[in-house]
Design a protein around this nucleic acid. Structure first.
Length: 460
RNA sequence: UCCAAAGUAGCUCAAUGGUAGAGCAGUCGGCUGUUAACCGACGGGUUGUAGGUUCGAGUCCUACCUUUGGAGCCA
């Protein structure tokens, strides 16, 4: 007999003589003559209520039907007499697939996310984390849909790389050398004896490789894991996280900002349209302001202002900030939040940042002091998108690289893109987990990623 | 890495420097078309670790560990 998902059983438009449900018991409530079971199989937030009559032969097993046990139940789908649900299952036959004894750590009552983090192998069985990971899947699907509908080509950029995308943070080294007996040379470790014959790392960004493909297939995107060995201990940073990086040939900074705005709005709208049940749970238990904030972003045009203007606004605000506001310095979290939450009261795209605080690949503007860079700022999270128009002029790029003390020989292929058929092109990066945090209201990145990796933590 | 707060039963939390407690969970029993059911009983603790102050420390002090929040770096 074919299994029916709880989601589909609850959506049924008529009763059904015989269906098979398989899942895990959330609660059991006993009466004298029968018991209620709540079964969840992860297909949706809601449980299916099962009635087990005490006259059933299988009722002798009732003591083993505890929270967490896995069961396979066949019976009749009937209209429920209770008011909390439309349908319920009158059990005919119950098979216990796996018992869960009293040591099962998940209880019927709510747990803190800090506690659930310690049992990351069981937390997907909780209501909140079930919702989160279903939404994570849906968001990944929406990302692909957005780009595929717009004729972007999905590129798999390498996870092991020999180039460090300068400015993106500390790298994890990839090596097969024995750390207790490294192949020594007079300068230290001899990486020519290493697996790839040179130093290699886990990627911090697929951007440079994506540029290669944009300069052939026009519009491309990457969507994959990236790694940072930074000792960052915050609720917004992980050592392993996923990033989306579109790259477009024949596109300038304005086109880049257009796409970023359209993309962010598309993802939020997709969530609002397809994850109603999950949204209600987040809005109720995670963040009461969630719906208001999502509509805030979806309904408004993003305000676009040059960096210099943003600095002037901050200076003239009369507010005292912990970090001083000055031309040439990076915007701090408090500055970003002031702009979106207090001054403009809408998402803000800041562009044309000073060249000195931006990486070598960003295009120099004609004013000689700024770069064609942009950041999209949203309430609460701050920067959610960072992007730029790339420097397409060979001589200017080479100069930038020298100013950043980079070895031109190691980037020979990157320079080749400007040597042969160079085109203006632009792109941006969006942190997948940051976007999920914004969409769900969940405040800690460790609750958004199935198995978080942070300094000192690589469990499971 | 820096700043701040916290750590007590399986979970969530109480306890003026003076006998460590509740709710939930668990076990046992009862009751009811129940729905994070309800009622009763029972079991459950080296108060994060190591020192110190004190007649006496969960409580005060020091160090360390862990967690959380904020900052920097960034996505």
């Amino acid at each position: 007999m074919q299994r029916t998902l709880v989601k589909n059983a609850l959506r049924s438009d008529s009763d059904c003589e015989s269906i098979l449900i398989q899942g895990w018991i959330r609660t059991r409530r006993d009466s004298k003559d029968f018991s209620f079971l709540a079964i969840n199989d992860g297909s949706c937030l809601k449980n299916l209520q099962v009635i087990v009559d005490a006259t059933l032969p299988d009722y002798t097993k009732i003591d083993q039907l505890t929270t967490g046990a896995s069961v396979s139940i066949e019976g009749k789908l009937i209209a429920s007499q209770g008011k909390e649900q439309k349908w319920e299952l009158a059990a005919r036959k119950i098979d216990i697939l796996g018992i869960a004894d009293h040591t099962y750590p998940l209880q019927k009552k709510g747990h803190t996310s800090e506690y659930l983090r310690e049992i990351a192998h069981l937390r997907p069985r909780s209501n909140l984390f079930g919702c989160l990971f279903r939404v994570r899947s849906r968001l990944a699907y929406a990302i692909h849909t957005f780009f595929q509908e717009r004729d972007f080509v999905y590129i798999h950029t390498p996870i092991i790389t020999s180039s460090d995308c300068e400015g993106a943070g500390e790298l994890f080294r990839v090596t097969t050398l024995d750390p207790s007996k490294p192949e020594a040379s007079k300068d230290g470790i001899d990486f020519s004896k290493d697996f790839f014959g040179k130093p290699t790392y886990l990627t911090v960004s697929g951007q440079l490789e994506a540029e290669i493909f944009a300069c052939a297939l026009s519009n491309v995107y990457t969507f994959g894991p990236t790694f940072r060995a930074e000792n960052s201990n915050t609720s917004r940073h992980a050592s392993e996280f996923w990033m989306i990086e579109p790259e477009m040939a024949f596109c300038d900074l304005n086109g880049d900002m257009d796409l970023a705005e359209e993309f962010v709005k598309y993802l939020i709208r997709d969530f609002l349209n397809h994850c109603q049940e999950d949204l209600e749970l987040f809005a109720k238990f995670v963040d009461k302001e969630l719906l208001k904030r999502l509509e805030f972003v979806v309904d408004r045009e993003f305000k676009r202002i040059p960096y210099a203007e943003a600095i002037d606004i901050l200076r003239e605000s009369g507010k005292t900030f912990e970090y001083p506001v000055q031309h040439g310095a990076n915007l701090q979290s408090e500055h970003e939040r002031f702009l979106t939450e207090e001054h403009f009261k809408c998402p803000v795209t800041v562009f044309d940042y000073p060249r000195e605080i931006k990486p070598f690949y960003m295009r120099a503007n004609d004013d000689g002091t700024t770069a064609a860079a942009m950041d999209v700022l949203v309430p609460r999270i701050g920067e959610i998108v960072g992007g730029s128009q790339r420097e397409e002029r060979l001589d200017v790029l080479a100069n930038n690289m020298k100013e950043h003390n980079l070895n031109l020989d190691t980037y020979w292929w990157y320079l080749d893109l400007r040597r042969y058929g160079s085109v203006p092109h632009s792109g941006f990066g969006l942190g997948f987990e940051r976007m999920l945090m914004f969409i769900t209201g969940v405040a800690n990145i460790r609750d958004i990623i199935p198995f978080p990796r942070t300094p000192g933590h690589a469990e499971f």
